[in-house]
Every structure is written in C-alpha cells, then in structure tokens.
Design a protein around this nucleic acid. Sequence first.
DNA 1: CTAAAATGTCTATTGATATAGACAACCATA
DNA 2: TATGGTTGTCTATATCAATAGACATTTTAG
Lengths: 245, 245
Amino acid sequence: MAGLKQVQRQTGVALWRQIADRIREAIGTGAYDETGMVPPETVLALQFGVNRHTVRSALAALAQEGIVRAVQGRGTLIERKERLNFPITRRTRFTAGIGDQARETRGLLLDEAREGASAEVARWLGLKPGEQVVRLETLRHADKRPVSKATSWFPAARFAGIGEAYRKHESITKAFAELGLSDYVRATTEVTAAHASTADLADLELTPGAILLIAKAMNTDLDGVPVQYSISRFAADRVQFTIEN
Amino acid sequence: MAGLKQVQRQTGVALWRQIADRIREAIGTGAYDETGMVPPETVLALQFGVNRHTVRSALAALAQEGIVRAVQGRGTLIERKERLNFPITRRTRFTAGIGDQARETRGLLLDEAREGASAEVARWLGLKPGEQVVRLETLRHADKRPVSKATSWFPAARFAGIGEAYRKHESITKAFAELGLSDYVRATTEVTAAHASTADLADLELTPGAILLIAKAMNTDLDGVPVQYSISRFAADRVQFTIEN
DNA sequence: CTAAAATGTCTATTGATATAGACAACCATA
DNA sequence: TATGGTTGTCTATATCAATAGACATTTTAG
C-alpha cells in the first residue's frame, strides 16, 4: 500500500494536479481514515517521487476545495469526505434517491425558457424538431452543498407551467403532480463522464479539472409517453450511481 | 454551435490538453462529420481564444493518438472516431453488449491469482473475509483497440479453473459455461468516474488526465448466489453506458 | 524544558507552456 | 498558372511548473 505512487510528466497535466486528484480519491476511499490526516508532506513527496513543494501545491488546491486543512506543527487534517449514492431504477427520483443520506435537500431554478426543440431533444421526447418545449436549468443541493446541475426539457403543450411549479415545490415530482401527472417512470438513462465546463464549475463549486458524471435520462408517464428529457451533471468525487436489476 | 468554446487557465491542466480533449470529444459526437475534417487551425484558435501554436500542440497530440492526420495545404483529416455504447441490463455481457459496434472483440488475461477475500470482495460475494477467491485481471479489445480493463473475483471453491477457461475462450460467459454455469444475471452495478491510474493508462493506451468510467458489478446465478464481483474501467471518451428500465 | 516532527516562507534555477509575428511549403481551384 | 487558404517552421519573449536548499514557526511527545 505504501508503494511508489506514480505520476507522469510532460503530458499537459501538471504534477501538482495529478497528485491532488490522487489524494482526493484516496481520501474518498477511506485510505487515511485511521489517522484522519493526510501523510506528512515529506512522505508524500517520497511516495510520488516529487519535490515537497510540488506536494504542497497539490495540498493547497485541496485546501482551497475545503477537503483538507493544514495545521502548522500538527499535519494536514481531512475536513470533508463524502460520496452520495444515487440508485438508478425505474422509479428514480432525485430527492427520494438521496433518502437518509442528507437531512435537507433543495432544488433551485436557475433559468427557465420556452424554445424550439433541437434534433436531440425532439428525438427523446418524441416531438418534431422545432416543436415548443420548456427548458429548465436546475441546481440541486444536499445539506447546503451543490450536488448536481441539470438541464431538463418538457413538452410545452402539456407542461407549460412546469417552471413556476418547480420554483414553488423545488421538486420535479411535485411539479408534475400539480400539473396533473401523478406518476412517471424512468425509461432510459445514459451515463458518461467528462471535464466540467466553466459554468458548471462555478455552480457546483468545483475547481477546474474536476470530473463530472453525466446522466442523460428520459422519463415517461405510465402510458409510455415521454414527459421529460434531462441532462444532469454530478460532481464525480461526491456521488456514485447504483443500478439495481 | 460556432460559439466561444471555453478553456480554463491556471488549473494545472495545459491549454493544449484541454483543447485536445474537447476536439476528441467533438469528433466522437460527430460534430465534424459533414466535412470529415477538423476546422482550420486559425478558426480553432479563434474559437478557443488561444494562439494558433497552442491549437497546433493539441492537434499534434491527437495525431499522435491516431485520431487525426494533418495534410499540408488541405487541412486536418479525421482518421478515427469511436464511442461504443454499453447497455447495462440484467443480462449485461461485454461481448454481446458490443454487438455489431465492432467486428472483432478479444479478451486478454493479464494476470491470475488465488487469494484471500478482502472485506469488500467478501461482502459482495457473500463470503467471509479471507475465504479463498480467484482474481482475474482482464483487458478487453474491440477491433484491436483497448476498451476496458477489469479486475474480477470469483469464489475459488466453485470456479477454481476460471482463469484457464477464460484464457481459452476469451469470454467470461463461455468460461462459466465450461465450469457448469450455463446462465447468470447482473444483480447490481455501481458507476463512478475518476482519473486513470498509471497502470490503467498504459494498458488502455490513454494519456494522463484521461477519465475513466468505472463500473463495479456483481453477477449471480439464477438462484441469486453471487458468482462474480468485478471492477471494470472504461475510457470515458470511448464509451457510454445505457441503462434501460 | 527540550527535541523531534510537522507546516510555512523565502530565494534561486531550470524546463515546460503560451503568446506573437513572420514566412515557407503545399493544395485546390478559378 | 495565379491566387487564396491551409499546414509547417523558425525566432523571440513572458509566465507557469518543478526542483533545490535553507531556515522559521508551531505542535506534540518525552
């Protein structure tokens, strides 16, 4: 376990960033749970085969993220360590999915627009390109920390008031209910990963280089008619998905 | 579509690498299918808001990967374009999942070991920690390109010869069949994303900073008894997962 | 109280990254 | 064959990333 951890040079990714990513991951998997601290800078420098200053740059980045806190004379303490689990099933819902993993969840409506459906959106919602849809940009929190940012499209003919309803209830499920849709199911989910865009970095309180888990999902009513297509971006170091079959 | 594409400075990730990643992704999603070429260097430089030399560094990296080929006087041609789709269902199998997306698939056995189950492995396989398991490290190709690397554990009592059988058939499904297990189902799948380790980078022919989609999966026989626990790492820019409910 | 161990700060040097400008070489086509 | 558009090459400069060493400051343990 204490073997030589490797980093690669001249790849366009700074060593301090590679090291920061490794340490963040190690914290997430509980590697330092016994002490609650990161190993000393000199030890890390030896393990990664780099200068102590390079390790310090990595730790400074993690401190900026609020993951660790350095205390002179003592060491570098782990402040935060979290990874929420999201079950993806036929009955996937954001708030219910978090369940007892957080005490308080919120849903913030960042933007609402009525627009013509793009080819992609039209295909998923079973519309013709250009047909009117409502687009919502939402940001979801768990215990006051941003967890995911989502862009959702709804057929405008059926769900014209979805934005207002979401703003009131802070929940898609309740907004649907107010508009007369009492139940819906997850039809399909596509999962990918990518680096975050600038806008997503800011809203999700991430640092550049961070990874997103991206879920493209389509929900239908009980008759199989598409009611929502959404692209949700999750901070990869804060969540994982679980698919139960 | 021709809007300002964004890159971030002072993040520890070189601009040329960020740009290379964006272009690779754009190629993968078919953004340049009409011409079969990447836009001219001067146009890309304008779109990303960087110097032309920086774009050239990015394109050089993609050329090194064999994704594009620059031709003086004409432009930069797209050589290869790939993103495989993996359905995750109760009947998930690697080879069958690829289906007609590739002509030839191979499964290479990198390593085989018999060992005591760790706490995590024991939990998933329903064993006591320390009970004997067989661990296989496998590398799967589609059309001669590495797609995923997997670590799998099997109860040693029941599947002692799984390594030999896999080496012969290059398929878990066929190896199971040889050992008397004619059918099995996917019980649960956990999906996360992370930066690749050095070993995975090499085997999957990736550059540092590349993102992995990680699927932790547990398969059972038809009686619900666990037969396999595996951690598969996929190059995120080459694959996506689809969950149909 | 002292020593060891840990983080904090400073200076200096080297190589990688990014910008800027100029011009050569090559290709397609009018 | 002339021209415009494209990639290839060169020089120069400024900033970031990484190494190296020295020493200060703080905490913990003996």
